[in-house]
Design a protein around this nucleic acid. Structure first.
Length: 560
RNA sequence: GGCCGGUUAGUCAAACGGUUAAGACGUCGCCCUCUCACGGCGAAGAUAGGAGUUCGAUUCUCCUACUGGUCACCA
């Protein structure tokens, strides 16, 4: 077989050699130890939590080492591409504080542009580059074409492999595939000429030289030493449209772009022998690999399942809608990434996560379950430590996007809003009332008249009993009183109406009184806030204003 | 089904082959207390099962079970 001729027949339009390509994309000049990582999503619509998990590793490894983090759009599957997905992906990542040094970016006209000298950073625009290397592989007899008629092609592309697999007779299928593969390897130059002249499309397949009985040894930075069967499958390099499959694009791009560390999900592990073979065929140095464990969820039966896009919390956009500050999500992510992060953060509560000595060695090899309880706890801490100005600003921004009515309330009187969120903020033991802005709204909405309603009525006491107390309270209330003075008067009201003012005494003998000071406070609290739990009442009144507070109590009494 | 991972409390997880097997979240109890939140104290709760190596195994080896992934002209 004249491979030189074959290469020319298959790729007549390719006039560059790999060597010339290498000259265009020279090796990076970076300090010793600097890592080059990349995030390489396919633009199918949103950022997955698992993707976020991976990009955080990319980001930490690159920036902690003084290296480069770049973004490459893997849009080799036109069928799955969603318009605008790349843009929203970049925005989402930026929202979470992930910024790329290089690669795909949003241009002035809103389109995707390439930033850096190793572009294009969209795989769909790199066809000539891939084909240059493909031509070389053909020249060396390491790749060959397989033709199909347009009808066959249509059928192949339409087949739903996923459902097909479910009913597969594995053994028979493997045998058949092997037979077909061997048959495909046999062809003549004349046949190729004829197919080309007939206008039939072809895929380019690698000529696998592996032996499935033998193992290839390999070290993954997360999983450790691995042994995988050598690749013996003539997998597809270029699809019939001349665009590469993931495997080929991975080898060419990560080589040319100088990636030193490839971070990707463990679902890629089974195809690693393919990649090892390809890098060897192409004469490329293999990058270091980190195959990350999956983030899982709990299914109805209590089994762990892969977090799928339907699950709450799978999309990063979900967290925005729920109102989790990005800082909280990142914080939670860091605890999943490195289990000693929490400990470090407890010692260094004011340092940003970028100061944390992130270590690959500390990463778990097994998949972890996504835990909302933990996220909430982390987030409550994060929010409790935020300055009040930031709380107000972020909450308002969230409300603007997801709850305009509430946003209007927040903006009506910024001083009031700030006063509300100053309650219990600052100091050594700040309140931790809400984990996200949605909960924050729920927590404070009673302050705003449009949301004020009696949500938790008092049922343990009669209307007359409640009224008697509230009447006395209103009669003795003086806006000039300080906190202590105010509470002394509440106590006096309690005593006058037969309620115990000392909780210890009351608990020791609950039948000795009509109720306790706690009950009296509850009457006032429900009247003012509509619920049985709230921050300190004196503070609440201070924010509501004496007039409005009294008005609420009178209205409450009238409706009893 | 073949191949490849994984398995320490409900969850996330520490433990040179030697510990009463950390810690965090959650749960429960007590304290503080006008409610809530905070905070303090405390409780329950784990090495999947079985062999082997070893003076000694969560840790090393093998088998079993369970679980996840993968087997496309998708990534």
């Amino acid at each position: 077989m004249d491979f030189e001729l074959l290469a020319e027949l298959l790729f007549p339009h390719i006039d560059k050699t790999p060597a010339e390509m290498e000259a265009i994309y020279p090796p990076r000049t970076l300090p010793e130890g600097a890592k080059v990582t990349r995030f390489a999503p396919s633009p199918t619509g949103f950022v997955h939590f698992g993707g976020m998990y991976q990009v955080m590793i990319d980001e930490r490894l690159a920036h902690q080492s003084g290296g480069v983090l770049y973004l490459r759009i893997e849009d080799t599957d036109a069928k799955r591409e969603v318009p605008g997905a790349a843009q929203s992906l970049i925005r989402t990542l930026a929202h979470y504080g992930v910024h790329f040094d290089e690669g795909a970016a949003i241009g002035e006209d809103g389109g995707i542009v390439g930033k850096g000298i190793y572009g294009p950073y969209k795989q769909s625009e790199r066809a000539v580059i891939y084909q240059t290397y493909a031509k070389q592989l053909v020249r060396e007899g390491k790749a060959y074409p397989v033709f199909s008629t347009p009808e066959e092609l249509e059928k192949t592309l339409a087949a739903d492999k996923k459902t097909e697999n479910k009913t597969k007779d594995w053994e028979a299928n493997a045998e058949e595939a092997k037979k077909e593969m061997l048959a495909n390897r046999n062809f003549t130059i004349e046949q190729v000429k004829a197919e080309l002249e007939a206008g039939h499309p072809f895929v380019l397949r690698v000529l696998a030289d592996g032996d499935g009985e033998k193992k290839v040894h390999f070290t993954d930075l997360i999983k450790g030493n691995l042994e995988l069967p050598e690749n013996e499958e003539d997998f597809v390099l270029l699809k019939s449209d001349g665009i590469p499959t993931y495997h080929f694009a991975h080898a060419v791009d990560d080589h040319l772009m100088g990636t030193t560390h490839v971070i990707r999900g463990e679902e890629w592990l089974p195809s690693l022998p393919k990649h090892i073979q390809l890098f060897r065929y192409l004469g490329f140095r293999l990058p270091k690999y980190l195959h990350t464990a999956q983030v899982l969820r709990m299914d109805e039966e209590g089994n762990k399942k892969k977090l799928s896009k339907r699950d709450m919390g799978a999309k990063m956009e979900d967290y925005d809608a729920m109102g989790y500050p990005p800082e909280s999500v990142i914080e939670y992510l860091m605890t999943l990434l490195n289990s000693n992060y929490e400990e470090w953060h407890a010692v260094n509560p004011t340092l940003p996560y970028t100061e944390f000595p992130f270590s690959v060695k500390k990463m778990s090899t097994s998949g972890c379950l996504f835990d909302f309880d933990k996220l909430n706890d982390v987030s409550k801490n994060v929010i409790s430590l935020m300055p009040v100005e930031k709380v107000c600003a972020d909450l308002t921004a969230w409300a603007d996007a997801f709850d305009p009515d509430f946003a209007a309330c927040l903006k009506a009187d910024p001083a009031v809003t700030q006063a509300i969120f100053s309650i219990g903020r600052g100091g050594k033991k700040p309140r931790k009332d809400f984990a996200n802005w949605k909960e924050a709204k729920n927590f404070v909405q009673f302050f705003f008249d449009p949301y004020y309603a009696i949500e938790e009525p008092v049922t343990e006491f009669s209307a007359d009993e409640i009224k008697a107390v509230l009447e006395d309270y209103l009669a003795s209330y003086d806006p000039e009183d300080d906190a202590n003075g105010w509470f002394e008067k509440v106590k006096a009201v309690a005593e006058k109406n037969g309620y115990c003012t000392n909780m210890k005494e009351y608990k020791a003998n609950p039948d000795g009184w009509k109720g306790s000071i706690g009950d009296v406070s509850t009457f006032i609290r429900v009247a003012l806030t509509g619920r049985k739990n709230s921050p300190d009442l004196y503070t609440v009144i201070g924010i509501l204003g004496a007039e409005r507070a009294c008005a609420r109590i009178r209205a409450y009494e009238n409706n009893l």
